[in-house]
């Protein structure tokens, strides 16, 4: 088996204030994948990333990045890693070009104007290279942060909420960029609280809640395993309430009584659909149309968190 590019073992963090931000997190990241760390605000996503990047000191646990312990062998580990933080921290008076060159030097790389030019062109920043950071829009600033993070040619890139507060168009751009980076061989770990984003981007998804990693799955397997489907029946005649004869199916009534909803497990042998339809025709309930839809990660996530808190 190929060794993981990042190996996190039993990582815990208790902040000085007593906040337990991470609880015994263990996680392997495979080389070349896009991994999405999904969780609500305050779940511990930024803390986890900050520890791997050396900004926060772990209370317990170890992290190995590309074979290098991040504490003992921090030089080698950090050269492999680029970080785009959640907040847009920039030097207002610096130019785009200067700040990207600075990052490259800081990470121990000799100046390479050709590389920096290509990088800025890739990110559509070349025309703005002489602009001061304070003159740039939020979206531009975010791209400069990405350029800074990529300036030392890292193998691993952390993107902390790359599309938070970004408009739809920019979000699509960002997704395209992340895919291009992955195609060039960079391993990408991104955090998000948009399920849609994890669903769109990730090869694998880790769900984190209250500092604990509650699930790590291939995205497809996750969808398949936990995926429920929903059947919608558009009724010919609206009804006021679900007839008691159909109670076994736990149906819901929607759209002013025009739609019947039935949630079923697509992986089950018996979905319950044929019997439902038979019973409906026995009762003389006609429908104009029907369709099914897969549940999104959002549905899955809500299900997961509620089952856990119910324990």
């Amino acid at each position: 088996m190929v060794p993981p590019v990042i190996s996190i073992r039993n990582l815990s963090k208790v902040y000085a204030g007593g906040d337990e931000a991470l609880r015994d997190v263990s996680l392997d990241i495979a080389r070349g994948e896009i991994f999405a760390l999904l969780g609500p605000n305050g779940a511990g996503k930024t803390t986890l990333i900050s520890i791997v990047c050396g900004i926060v000191t772990p209370t317990r646990g170890t992290v190995v990045a590309d074979g290098h312990d991040i504490v003992r062998d921090y030089r080698a580990a950090r050269r492999k890693i680029g970080l785009v933080p959640q907040e847009l921290h920039t030097d207002a008076f610096e130019t785009v070009l200067a700040t990207v060159r600075f990052s490259r030097g800081l990470f121990g790389r000799p100046p390479d104007d050709g590389f920096v030019e290509t990088l800025l062109k890739d990110l559509s920043l070349w025309d703005r290279r002489a602009s001061k950071m304070m003159e740039l829009s939020g979206g531009m600033k975010r791209r400069v942060m990405i350029a800074k993070a990529l300036s030392h040619e890292p193998d691993i890139l952390f993107l902390d909420e790359p599309t938070a507060g970004v408009d739809v168009e920019l979000r699509r751009d960002m997704w395209a960029l992340v895919r291009r980076l992955r195609d060039s061989g960079v391993t990408i770990i991104l955090t998000t609280h948009y399920i849609e984003e994890a669903q769109e981007m990730a090869d694998r998804v880790g769900v984190i809640s209250k500092g604990a990693l509650i699930l790590v799955e291939e995205k497809k397997a996750l969808m398949r395993k936990l995926g429920k489907k929903q059947l919608t029946l558009n009724l010919a005649e609206p009804m006021l309430r679900v007839p008691p004869e159909l109670a076994d199916w736990h149906l819901a009534l929607n759209a002013d009584g025009q739609e019947l909803l039935y949630v079923f497990d697509a992986n089950e042998e018996r979905t319950g659909i044929p019997s439902l339809l038979r019973r409906m025709s026995d009762l003389g309930i006609a429908f104009k149309d029907l369709h099914t839809r897969e549940s999104s990660l959002e549905d899955i996530f809500v299900g997961l968190v509620s089952t856990r808190s119910g324990q």
Binding site: R75, L83, L106, G108, K148
Partner: peptide, 14 residues
């Protein structure tokens, strides 16, 4: 003050 210290802390500098 500006928060750009994150880069220094995450860089391979002693």
């Amino acid at each position: 003050f500006t928060g750009t210290i994150y880069e220094m802390l995450s860089a391979p500098v002693s």
